[in-house]
Structures are given as C-alpha cells and as structure tokens.
Design a protein around this nucleic acid. Structure first.
Length: 1069
RNA sequence: GGGGCACUAGCUCAGGUGGUUAGAGCGCACCCCUGAUAAGGGUGAGGUCGCUAGUUCGAGUCUAGCGUGCCCCA
C-alpha cells in the first residue's frame, strides 16, 4: 500500500516535510559521500556579501545554480558545493558608518580604527541568518558550514601571495592618474565598481566666455557640465581641422566658436560673421580663465591646444580642460607639457584659496559658481543636461568625480591579450557575452585601480623602506616572521587586552600597520603603505584563496582538483565584477594553465524585473518578497516559474501570476496524475515489487507514453548539458501535458476495470514507471515535490532503493522505449480527433449526440494503418460508432500538390516557383494517381524536364465544400451527419444522463453514491429512456431506475424540447 | 556619443543549422465532461513576426540602414 495522497495538496506544507526529511536523514551529506569516487564537477560559488538582505535576484541565481548542480550530481558526478562569504570592503564599511551615524574617513579615524574594524567584523555576518533561511527555503544545497570567508587569515595570505606574484612580475605599480573618486568615502573605485552605480541625473550645462588675450571684447566660448572644475582650468581644446567662426553679436561683443555649433548656440540671435579660421590657427592663443585663485605650477597654462577628442556634436567646439579632473584632460595637458592645478580637496570641498567657495562641496557649489559667472558677464548660456552619471555603488546619493590621485594599479593592459585569448575558450551562455559585453569590456581595458584609502579590506602587502625607498611585496605571514620574528607583538599585545580578537585580525588594519622590520647593515625601517585593496580582487582570488593556497599544504591538492571550475553562474552585473576579476587574476597568475581558466562554462543571467519590465526595487515595492511568495505557493512553484521564464542574458519579468501558473499548469498536473495512480493502485492492491509485463507486450497507449517519456528524457538531458534550462523546461511541460491530458485521461477506464487483466497490469506498470521516471527527471527543478512523490512510490516501497530521489540516478534514455512511429500515430490520431471536433462545432452537433461514422481521408496506406491503431479512442472522443476510410477520396476532398521545398530547392533552384505553379495547376488527383502507380512524374520546366519522385512532392487533402468536413495537417475528417431515429434516441439518452448527473451534483451527492431514480416523460423521449435504461442507470449509478416518480427530490428538465421529470434520492446505506 | 540585447496574437513568451499553413500559456467566445470534481478537457476568434532595402528559387530566421525600449559604458 502506498500512503494515501490527496489531490488537495499544500505545497508549502510539503516543503516543510521534505526539508525535515532531508535534515533528519542528512541527504545532502549523503549525496556527497555517495559520489566521492565519481569524477568531479567543479562549481564556484560567487560569494555574496552577507551584510545586506537577500533579494529576488539572489533567489534567481541560487535556483539556477542549484538546478545544474543537482542535475550533474544525479548524472554521476561528484559535485561539492562550497559556500563563501565576501566580507571586505566598502559595502561593509558603509553599513557600519550608517550604524554609527558617522561618515567619511576623518570621522572613522576619530572614532578609532580598532573599534571600527571590530564593528566591521560584527556587521559582516549581520544578515547571515536571513541568507541561510532563504537558501534553505528555496532548496539550494550548498555547504554553509564549511564556507570560505575572505577576511580569514589564510584567505588574506593567498591574496597576498597573488599580489606578490604580480609585483614580482612588474604588474603592480603606483601611479598618478585620474581615477573615479568617491569624495565622501575618501577613496578611488575600480571600473567594475563604477559600473555598479550609474543613475540618471540632471546636471548644469553651461557655456562660458574665456576672454582672448590681446583681442578686446573677444571671447572663446567653451562648454562644460562640471562648473566646479573651472577654477582649475588649464587649457581650452579645439579640433584642429574644424572651422571656427569669429562673430559679432548685436551688443558688439565678439565670440569664437565652432561653425558647426553656431546655429545651435546663437539660434536666431542677430550676429555678423567676421572671420573663419581652422582650429589649428587658434592653437597657442592665450586667454584669461574665468577664475584665477592660484597660478598653475610646473608649466604654462591658459592657452588653446588641439585635441582629437573634441566633438562637434554638442557644446561649442571648444572644450574646457582641467587635467586634475578628467582623464582626457590629463593626457592632453601632459603631452603638451602644460601646468597643473588641483583646486579641490580629496573630500570634495574647495580649499581656502578658492575664497569665494572655500569649504563648499564641489557639486553643491555649481549653482553659486554659475551665479558668479553671470554677474561678471562671463556666462553665455545655461541649460540642464540629463545624462547617466556614476554614483557610489554603496551609497547612491554620493556622486563620484574624476580626480587625479596617487594610487596602486595592476598593469592589466599589458597582459590583456592573454585574458582575451583565455576568454575565447570559455563557453558563455548566452554566446554573445563573449564577444559582446565581456569582450568589449576587455577591449577597452584600463589598468585596474587596486588600492583603496580605506580601513576594512585586505591590506596591500607592500612595505617601503622609509629611508632608501626600497619597495618589497610580501606573500605571507611567515615571510614577515622570517624578517622580524617579533613583528606581530603589537597584535598579540592587543589580543591579551581583548581576548575576543580573532587570530584572523593579525593581517588587518590597524594591527598590520604596526608590523615593521629592518635589514641588517642597511638604514631605514620597512613600513607598510596605508592602503587596502579593492574587495573585487578578493573575490577574484577565490579559486585558490578558498583553500589558502599555496600556504596551507594539506589543501594544495584540493585546489588542483577543483581548478578550473566547470560551471559558474551569476547575473549580468558581474561581467565587470566577478567574471572579470576571476579571469584576469587567473590569467595573470597561472601562466602554465591551459585555457580556459578559472571557469569553463558561464551562464549569465539577466535582471529580474516586474511585470512592466521595471527594475525591482525596494523603494518602488513593485514585487512580492520571494520568501512570502514561497510561503503561499511553495518553493517549487517559485523555482519552476523562474526556470520557465528565465532565458540567460535576458531580463526576466517575474510576478506572482507566473508562480500561480506554475502550480496549475505544471505541479498540479503531475500531482493529480500521481494522486490518481495512488488511489487506484491502493484500491487494486497493486504491488510495485511484483514482476511487470515486458514493455513490448503492452498496449500501444502504454508504449506510446513510454516513447514520449524517453523522447523527453533525451531532450532534457541534451538541453541541460548545454546549460539551456529554459528549453529543458519546455520539453518537460510538453510531456506532462501529454501524460495528464491524453494518457491518464484516456486510460482511466483501464484502471478501474474489475478483475485481473493483462491490460490493467500493463496500465499500472506503465503509469508507475512513468511517474517514477518523471520524478527523477524533474528532481533538479522541483526538488521538494519530486522527493515527496519518490518517497511514497519508491524509497519506502522498493527494497534497496535510494533513500532519496536526489541520491538516485537522473532519468536515463531507454532503447526499449523508443518508438517513433507510435509517437507519430498518436500525433495523427489527435489531429483526427481535433478535426472531427471542429466539424462538430461547425455543424453544431454536440459531442453528446452519437453519430454513425467518421470518414477519414488519408493520402496513403501507412497513415490508415497508423490511425487504426487508435481507432477505439478516436471513436470515443468523437462519439461515433464507426471510423471508416474512404476509397473514393475524390468525393470529399481535393488534392493539393506542393513541391517538397527542402528536397527540391537545391535541385531545381530557380525553377522552383514554376514547379510550384505547375503542380498547383495540374489535376491533383490524376497527377497523384500517376505518382502512386508509376512512382514518378515528369514536369517540363523552363525547357528542362525534371523527374519527381514521391519524396519530392507533398500531398495535402483539402475538404471540398458542402460536406461536414475539416482538415488538420493535411488530413480530412468527414462526419456522417445523418441522425437516424436510433441515433437520436441514443442522443436523448445521453442528455438524460447529463441531466441526472447534474442533479446529483446539485444535491452534493458523494461521487460514488448509489441512487434511486424514478422518471416521467412522453413520446420519443420516453421511448429513448426505455430503450437505454440500462446505460442510463449505469452512468448515473442508479441501483434502481424506474418509470414513474418515486421518493426523493423532484427534478424537472428539458431535453430537446420535451419535458423530463425525475425523482432522485440516495440509496440508504 | 560608443557597445550589447530586445522588438512575434490583447498580455507574457517559445520559435538549433533559411524551406512556403509562425506556436504555447493567460485572457476572450462557444462547447464538452461530471468516477482527478470548489477540478478537467476541447474548438474558435485573434499575427503585414518594429520599419525599409538587400542576399536567395525561398527570410520571423541571413546582411545593411532606420525606429523604439532596456542594459552597460563614455
């Protein structure tokens, strides 16, 4: 006996039971143990930062990881899944700042770096619990207990090892460059980080007069969207080969601007063109800058230079240059040997020298700067410019600015060709990421701005001799101890004072900053530089740092075994983040490895959006929290909805409705088939361990559903091997629909047949096998429901069966089940049924009304035999007494002959349209007859003669007008619509059955309840009832069915115009 | 301004290697079933496949240009 199964199922409740089972039985651990000797399938978990709440996007990535990992695991691989936590960097510091209500580097320094660091450690795991709850709830199996943690000493040492290697290769250097600077945070950000923080804003766009020296009343017009950089102006840039006009305005003042921009800037303002010059002719001309608080150092300034990047699509054709605040500006001024001016402090405020705006934050001062220019008559035009501008990805209200700064860089540009070569070997899903988004990013690669002038991060392991300037990179704690055995005394001292200080912290600020050493016989002390590094570098080191490689000797083997990864997946925002850092670091470090590394397959997921395609955001509240959704619909429904909606690389519109559909269209179909099976198997006392009939000996219906199953198994495996989960899902949905809507529906009577029969045995065996295989097929997608079914059908019933579906092998192809002709036969039969039903609808002949025959017109004998295999079912579905095949096709149909384009295209080429026309014009019936008798026909086309065989021509049958006929895929079904008196009576009887059953339902009688019926009717209706009394009684479960009203509720109904009255009462028990 | 992606039925989306009747679900209309039943099933209506050129015997599919939207970056 199976445990009874109710068709009413609470999936959330089911989840909880399954989860408890997994926990009690340690199933996840057993999966790993059981597969230990199997070949590994390597997966890298991109470490999330646990100091923020998990959201819907995280659910998607975890679910997507899970399906492939479970699939590989069931397919005979050993699939370790180690969790990881990203613990360093700005995200954490910013959270702590918020918590402490402070902001900025100075505030942190005032608070104290040691207590601040301690706060960071606390904060790192603030939401770990929420992450674990979410992870468990969606059924993502990952080893959380053995998670790698980026701030741990061994991890940091691995990162140091990597950096030392880069340093020794000359790939780590300190440079003065314009970086994206976060003033409030007091640090530079990497290209990847900047990419995280764009948003659309309105900025002022102003056109300013720069008076030309030696030309009274004449000014250059220059354009800028950053007024606050004007005090640091060094030069103006023109396009050398563009034309520049000198014009006189109606007020007598003269302006110089690009001719291409004149119409736009001057509009219909009256002006007189005085002169036209090439940009080149203005080069070297000096001008008076709008502000002159401090004189530039190190070279001449305030003159016109030529530059390539000047565009004529916007602005005035003259660009204001402030080398301290723009990458292009920096390069241009440097190559011209011009001076330098940086009138902005690192915190984004103006220094005292800028008397008018001293102490003001740069962007906040824009309005006053504009006002100042206006009062001095230097402002020509002011507009608002809407564009995307980067903000701090951790605090979106803080704008970034371009700012020249000393910073440490990784010289990625030198080796980028190797990264590109590596990238060529990676399988990206979708494919276009390789050459598109990711490839383009590599194309435009700039050196990695690595250092952060912050506190909580992997310290940059560079020590500098304070006298000689000698620079050393350090790769481990041990290396330091070799130089100075007492280097960490300061830390141990601190640890004695505060016993809670973990050993991991010895490699962190502020303690690491006290680590110094000297070298015998040499002057000076080696002290560490103050910076920490970009936390994206940390996560990029994860393939080796998770094992503490190479320092932790016992784990070196683990690293080599788990490198490179077979599979990773994250969202598209990681192209410039983790995907980049992983691949770049790996390429730079592991010269000897063969490409690709450190990952072979990468599935890139799009963003989750709401129903309107808008980004999901907490502030908009435009989505239901996935956890809530799972509470009402269950984890499997959410998972299935995500799999069926998510195409890699594309945004996924996700909404509650999709989850509901997943339940009704998928989960419930399987569940109902399963509940149906269990119910009847239990009634019948069916034993799953008893021998079952051979597949070959079972009826066509059974062999068909097994063939469909096998076809589906093959398709699903192929798609999953290809990382195309969305396609796998479609195959499964198609099969489940076939199972539920055709196999189970059509096979029902076989299951409730009385007594023993080969047919019933085959039906039970087949449905059981199909359900078990399906369970294994869908287990990676819907791990909870599949487990519940598997437990009941297999695990607790079959001796030596796996304890869990996830310990079982994935559904496998079976040669025994393949039967393409049978699949085709059912497809044909269903087409015939569909056509017949359409005829009925067209002619308004209810299916309830039996008809004598359906005539099927087929083009060849094969199809006829094929259709006959399912004759009984077709008869039943169409409610006809007979299926006939006509020899006189011409009576009902026309032949339409078409070339088989795929076959003839290459052969006929240009003659194809003529061929099509010739076939259409010919007498189809005659030509077809010829084709059948002689095996070929000859056509003359454009002077040439072509012999066409049966495979070159496709025949379509088209129903002739005037018949109750319909066609479907080239087959015609004709219904004999003549209703004889006998048929009419049979129809009436069906109507009566229908009325009585309706009445049963109205009275809320239990489904199996026996009833007594007494009836009254006249004329033909009475004759019909009398003639079919037995059938009516059987179909309405009437143990007594008598003429004349009896006891019970009285019902009146109308049956095709005649009155019917009957009494109905349940039989006493 | 550059790069990437998308544009297919009222809505949400599928449509390897080009093959001539473009599919599904939801919604809608009509119908069936009443032994999966506060379920199930069927039939139908609905599409110039964003637009315009081109390649080809043949284009939703390939090429180019344009338009609209989203993402990424200047």
């Amino acid at each position: 006996m199976f445990d009874p199964v109710s068709p009413q199922v609470s999936f959330p409740q089911l989840d909880k039971e399954v989860q408890r089972f997994w926990d009690d039985e340690r199933i996840f651990a057993k999966v790993l143990e059981q597969s230990k000797k199997k070949p590994p399938f390597v997966f890298y978990e991109g470490p999330p930062t646990a100091n923020g709440m998990p959201h819907a996007g995280h659910v998607l990535t975890r679910v997507m990881k899970d399906v492939f990992l479970r699939y590989k695991s069931m397919s005979g691989f050993h699939v370790p899944r180690r969790a990881g936590w990203d613990t360093h960097g700005l995200p954490v510091e910013v959270e702590v700042e918020k918590e402490l209500g402070i902001s900025g580097r100075q505030a942190i320094a005032d608070f104290g770096i040691e207590p601040f660091t301690k706060k960071c450690i606390e904060s790192v795991f603030k939401y770990t619990h929420e992450w674990e709850v979410m992870t468990r709830r969606i059924g993502f199996w990952v080893d959380l207990e053995d998670a790698y943690v980026t701030f741990h000493k061994s991890y940091v040492e691995s990162v140091w090892w990597a950096l030392k290697k880069l340093f020794d290769k000359g790939l780590l250097y300190k440079g003065h460059k314009v970086v994206w600077w976060w003033p409030q945070g007091g640090t530079a950000l990497s290209a990847g980080e900047v990419g995280q923080g764009y948003k659309q804003v309105d900025d002022p766009s102003i056109t300013v007069r720069f008076p030309v020296k030696g030309m009274p009343d004449t000014s250059f017009l220059a354009w800028t969207t950053t007024p606050w950089t004007l005090p640091s102006n060094i030069a103006l840039a023109v396009k050398a080969d563009a034309d520049y006009l000198t014009v006189r305005l109606d007020d007598g003042r003269k302006l110089v601007l690009a001719e291409a921009r004149a119409a736009n800037l001057l509009g219909d303002r009256p002006h007189e063109i005085l002169e036209r010059r090439k940009g080149q002719q203005w080069v070297g001309t000096e001008y008076e800058p709008p502000f002159r608080y401090v004189e530039p150092e190190g070279g001449p300034a305030h003159r016109v230079i030529a530059a390539d990047f000047v565009e004529l699509a916007s602005g005035s054709g003259l660009v204001h240059l402030a080398p301290a605040f723009g990458e292009d500006d920096f390069a241009a001024c440097k190559s011209e040997g011009l001076g330098w001016l940086q009138l902005l402090r690192p915190d984004g405020t103006f220094p005292p020298e800028v008397t008018d705006f001293a102490g003001r934050f740069c962007k906040d001062a824009d309005r006053d700067i504009i006002r100042n220019l206006r009062t001095r008559g230097l402002l020509f035009k002011e507009e608002v410019y809407r564009h995307d501008y980067p903000f701090s990805w951790r605090r979106m209200e803080d704008p970034l600015i371009q700012y020249a700064r000393e910073s440490w860089f990784v010289r990625t540009t030198q080796e980028i060709h190797r990264v590109q070569e590596n990238n060529e070997h990676v399988h990206w899903e979708p494919e276009h990421i390789k050459r598109g988004r990711f490839g383009q990013f590599l194309e435009g690669n700039v050196d990695w701005a690595l250092s952060r002038e912050r506190f909580w991060g992997t310290p940059l392991p560079i020590w500098v001799n304070d006298e000689t300037g000698d620079v050393v990179a350090v790769g481990s704690v041990e290396e330091i101890l070799e130089r100075n055995p007492r280097a960490f005394d300061h830390f141990y001292e601190a640890q004695r004072r505060d016993r809670s200080l973990a050993d991991h912290l010895m490699v962190h600020k502020p303690w690491i900053d006290h680590v110094t050493w000297t070298e015998r016989g040499k002057p000076g002390v080696y002290r560490r530089v103050p910076e920490v590094i970009d936390c994206w570098f940390d996560s990029g080191c994860m393939p080796f740092a998770q094992w503490g490689y190479p320092h932790v000797k016992e784990q070196r083997k683990k690293f080599h075994k788990a490198f490179p990864a077979d599979f990773i997946t994250e969202a598209v925002d990681q192209t410039r983040g983790w995907f980049y850092s992983l691949m770049t670091i790996s390429t730079l470090l592991f010269d000897e490895e063969k490409y690709p590394h450190p990952f072979k397959n990468c599935v890139v997921l799009g963003l989750l959006t709401d129903e309107q395609g808008r980004k999901m955001s907490k502030s908009l509240k435009n989505y239901t929290d996935p956890l809530e959704l799972m509470e009402s619909a269950g984890a499997d429904a959410v998972r299935w909805a995500l799999y069926s909606a998510t195409v890699p690389g594309q945004n996924t519109r996700f909404f509650d409705r999709a989850t509901k559909e997943a339940i009704s269209k998928f989960l419930l179909k399987i569940w109902n088939s399963y509940a149906f099976f269990v119910q009847l198997a239990n009634i019948d006392g069916w034993d799953p361990t008893a021998p079952r009939p051979a597949v070959g000996g079972r009826p066509p219906m059974d062999r068909w559903v097994l063939a469909e199953l096998d076809h589906t198994v093959r398709s699903v495996r192929r798609e999953l091997d290809d990382y195309k989960s969305h396609l796998a899902v479609r195959h499964i949905e198609g099969f489940v629909d076939a199972l539920s809507n055709w196999y189970v529906r059509r096979s029902k009577p076989r299951f409730w047949a009385q007594g023993e029969s080969a047919d019933k045995a085959a039906a039970f065996a087949t449905l059981y096998e199909v359900l078990v295989e399906t369970t294994k097929l869908i287990a990676p997608f819907v791990p909870f429901m599949s487990e519940a079914i598997f437990q009941n059908l297999v695990a607790t019933r079959i001796p030596k069966a796996p304890r869990s579906v996830h310990l079982a092998a994935f559904a496998e192809p079976s040669v025994e089940r393949v039967d393409e002709s049978l699949r085709r036969a059912v497809q044909l039969s269903r087409a015939v049924v569909a056509a017949g039903l359409r005829v009925r609808a067209d002619t308004k002949l209810k299916v309830r009304q039996p008809l004598s025959k359906a005539i099927v017109a087929v083009a060849d004998e094969m199809e006829r035999v094929t259709i006959q295999r399912f004759e009984r079912i077709i008869r039943d579905e169409l409610n006809v007494e007979e299926i006939a095949f006509t020899d006189e096709l011409e009576t009902y149909v026309d032949y339409q002959l078409l070339p088989n384009f795929r076959a003839l295209g290459p052969r006929l080429g240009k003659h194809l349209p003529a061929c099509k026309a010739a076939l259409a014009a010919a007498d189809g019936a005659a030509l077809y007859a010829q084709l059948r008798t002689k095996g070929s026909v000859v056509l003359a086309l454009g002077g040439e003669r072509f012999e066409l065989g049966p495979d070159d021509i496709q025949v379509r049958l088209v129903a002739k007008a005037g018949f109750a006929a319909a066609e479907e895929q080239g087959h015609v079904v004709v219904l004999d619509t003549q209703i004889t008196p006998a048929l009419h009576r049979a129809g009436l009887a069906r109507e009566v059955i229908n009325r009585i059953n309706k009445a049963r339902k109205e009275m809320d009688l239990p489904i199996g309840a026996r009833v007594h019926v007494g009836w009254e009717a006249d004329g033909e209706l009475a004759e019909a009832i009398a003639a079919h009394a037995e059938t009516i009684a059987a179909e309405t479960l009437a143990s007594r069915f008598e003429r004349g009203l009896g006891e019970g509720r009285l019902h009146e109904a109308e049956v095709s115009g005649d009155g019917l009255r009957f009494s109905l009462r349940p039989e006493e028990a």
